[in-house]
């Protein structure tokens, strides 16, 4: 039982595809390291934001004046549900390898993710037009756009990746490399959700409270 006892992060293939599980060992560990490195990047952006949101106002708007909590709440819900939907896509892949159902769940995930990116772009639009708060206005806004923008960029590249994976599922089918790529995308997607927790808490909620 050593295979199923030694679990890597994310959904494991131990029960249904021992060979795939074996191949996953190295690949997923590598990707997990990449995510940790990415997390450090976000941590640095968070720390910069924390300082800039105080020091970098420079006579421009303050956090509480430009943030829309309702939008942030809806964005949180979209991202959370898309993470959940991806989980179900992975279950379909693991237990049934049913292309149609995996693709439908991926579609749900992708639509929710795209809606999230769309809402964020709309937020930016409102901030720039209605609040006169473009990134060039102050250090605080530079840090805000860089932090949320880096996250949005990650989500967007996740969406592109997802589209490519959908094509691979259709063209190649559930070969081991395709499965492993989907598993890595899942890790990536869930991790972006974790980063977003930081953003909605430390950027939006903290910004409005203080």
């Amino acid at each position: 039982m050593s295979l199923s006892e030694r679990l890597h992060p994310g959904l494991n293939l131990a029960g249904t595809d021992p060979e795939g599980h074996e191949a996953a060992e190295e690949v997923l560990f590598g990707f997990w390291i990449f995510l940790m490195s990415d997390l450090v990047l976000f941590a640095v952006l968070f720390a910069t934001y924390a300082a800039m949101s105080v020091q970098g106002i420079a006579g421009g708007p303050r956090p509480a004046e430009v943030f829309d909590l309702t939008a942030a709440f809806l964005e949180t819900m979209l991202l959370l549900l898309s993470s959940f939907a991806f989980g179900f896509a992975m279950l379909e892949m693991k237990y049934r390898e049913n292309r149609r159902r995996v693709l439908s769940w991926l579609l749900v995930t992708g639509v929710l993710g795209a809606a999230f990116v769309g809402m964020e772009l709309h937020d930016y639009y409102v901030m720039i037009t209605a609040h006169a708060a473009p990134p060039q206005a102050s250090g605080f806004l530079s840090a805000y756009y860089l932090l949320t923008g880096t996250h949005a960029l990650h989500v967007s590249s996740g969406l592109v990746w997802m589209a490519i994976m959908a094509v691979q599922v259709m063209v190649i089918g559930f070969s081991t490399p395709v499965k492993l790529r989907l598993m890595r995308l899942a890790l990536f997607w869930h991790m972006l959700d974790v980063v977003w927790i930081g953003i909605f808490t430390f950027v939006y909620l903290f910004g409005v409270v203080s």
Binding site: R6, H8, G87
Partner: peptide
């Protein structure tokens, strides 16, 4: 919660 339930990181059973 995310790490535990979505990423399935489990103190007892993980690497």
């Amino acid at each position: 919660v995310h790490l535990r339930y979505f990423l399935h990181i489990d103190l007892a059973r993980s690497h």
